[in-house]
Structure formats: structure tokens, C-alpha cells
Amino acid sequence: MNKDIGRNAERELVKILSSMGYRAVRIPTSNSSPNPLPDVFATFGGTLLAFEVKSTWEPKLKIREIQIRKILDFLSMFTMEGHAYVAVKFKSFKKWEFFEVLNPSSIEVKVGNGIDLSSLSHIQRFNAEELI
């Protein structure tokens, strides 16, 4: 993937999350970095979300284990509740989809098999409201 395309998708996701009330930030780092850092992370209430962000014209995409492991390792450094997601902008379909990952293994994501941001938002906002 072209690095500029990836950076633009990360920035777009940060803007979307921020507009929905999340505190979100892009971590500008190279994929080759050995550090366990996500592309984007966000908080809402007591929940931390870590995202591996992808952008593609294709209807499916393979995500390598090392990329999944990094976001899971990042979340393990914190005591707050955390969720790891692969966020994919399917450009041909003009939509974002989110895939929660629980185990460090390679996965293949397909358009139509993820959840949309409104579902993600509902889950996280519900958890945050429980903390009040």
C-alpha cells in the first residue's frame, strides 16, 4: 500500500472518531517498527481502542500476524478495558468496516463481514455509560 494512502486513511479515521466524541490520535510510525504501536488509538470513558488501519480498492484483504500482534501487545500494557480492531476503508464500496481481533494470527477480511462504525460506537458508548 502506498504510504500516503495509508496515512490519509489513518487521518480520516481520527477525524471520524473525534467527531463522534472519542479522543483519538494517529501514531505516525513505520510498520517495520518493533514497538507494539497501533496506527490509531482512541478512548471513550474507560475504554481504549487500538486500530490497525488499511485502505484498499479490493473486496478482501489479508492482515499479517505481526500487525495484529502489535495492537494486542499495545493493549496489554494498560489496565483499562481495551479492544483491538482492524479498520478497513473499502474504497470501491465507499465504506469503512471494523473487525475485532482477539488472537495474534493472520486474518483475511472481506467487505460485508465487518461491523460499521455506528455499531462500534454503540458498543463503546454503552460501556462508557456503564462506568458513570
Rank of each mutant, 00 (worst) to 15 (best):
G21M: 04
N127P: 00
V40S: 10
T29G: 12
G45N: 12
R26Q: 15
I5L: 11
G45T: 11
K62F: 08
S33C: 12
V14K: 03
S92T: 11
E97N: 02
K110M: 09
K62L: 07
K91W: 04
G6L: 02
V25A: 15
M77K: 13
F90M: 02
I16T: 07
G45W: 12
L72P: 00
G82W: 00
K110W: 09
E52C: 06
F78N: 00
V88Q: 05
V101M: 13
S33H: 08
I71D: 00
L72W: 02
I63E: 05
S18K: 05
A128R: 11
F98S: 07
E65F: 00
A42M: 12
N31E: 14
S105V: 15
E108R: 15
E100K: 14
E12K: 11
I107S: 06
M77N: 10
G21T: 01
S76W: 01
R11F: 04
I132R: 15
F90N: 01
V53P: 08
D4T: 09
R7N: 10
Y22E: 05
V109H: 11
R11Q: 11
V40Y: 10
P38T: 06
G82P: 01
I115L: 10
G114H: 06
K91Y: 01
I123T: 13
I68L: 00
R11H: 02
P59T: 11
L48F: 10
I132N: 13
Y22M: 09
V53C: 08
G46L: 13
F99Y: 15
D39R: 04
L117R: 09
Y22K: 08
R69M: 01
R26V: 09
